[in-house]
Design a protein around this nucleic acid. Sequence first.
DNA 1: GCCAACGTTGGC
DNA 2: GCCAACGTTGGC
Length: 156
Amino acid sequence: MNYWLMKSEPDAFSIDDLMACPEQTEPWDGIRNYQARNMMRDDMRVGDRVFFYHSSCPQPGVVGIMQVASEPYPDPTQFDPDNKYHDPKSSPDNPRWQLVDVKFESKFDELVSLKALKANPELADMALLKRGNRLSIMPVSKAHWQVICAMAGATA
DNA sequence: GCCAACGTTGGC
DNA sequence: GCCAACGTTGGC
């Protein structure tokens, strides 16, 4: 089992939106970065656990936990000309972008803020905190996973 | 709104 | 294959 972190701007899609979804499951669409795609396509397994991270907002940080809920499959938004994630260079015969579904697991009582993450020496080498990191999906080590769960007062 | 960092594009 | 220009991300 692997651990991950996935970012979303809460204005677009927040953990509360995920909780409100039917079955609390949602396709994680709109990823248009090859590294992030490759991780969803090649490395994620159903049941993997994922930190939900709110980015580009007043309080960036980890807000809860979800799980990978499907095998990878083509992101349908890439084929829809009216969708903001439409990719004219992709086609159903040769899809460029893949996604997985995610499923809500838990929401932290209080978010673990980016500031708190940066202040914890045990997380110093975490990819999320590396200078200039812009990846929206990244792996999390088991050790870091447990540290962050402890910071949230949640069971790892 | 600013700016640093970084990915992508496209001409050559 | 190089590299300048451009667009996007994301914290502040």
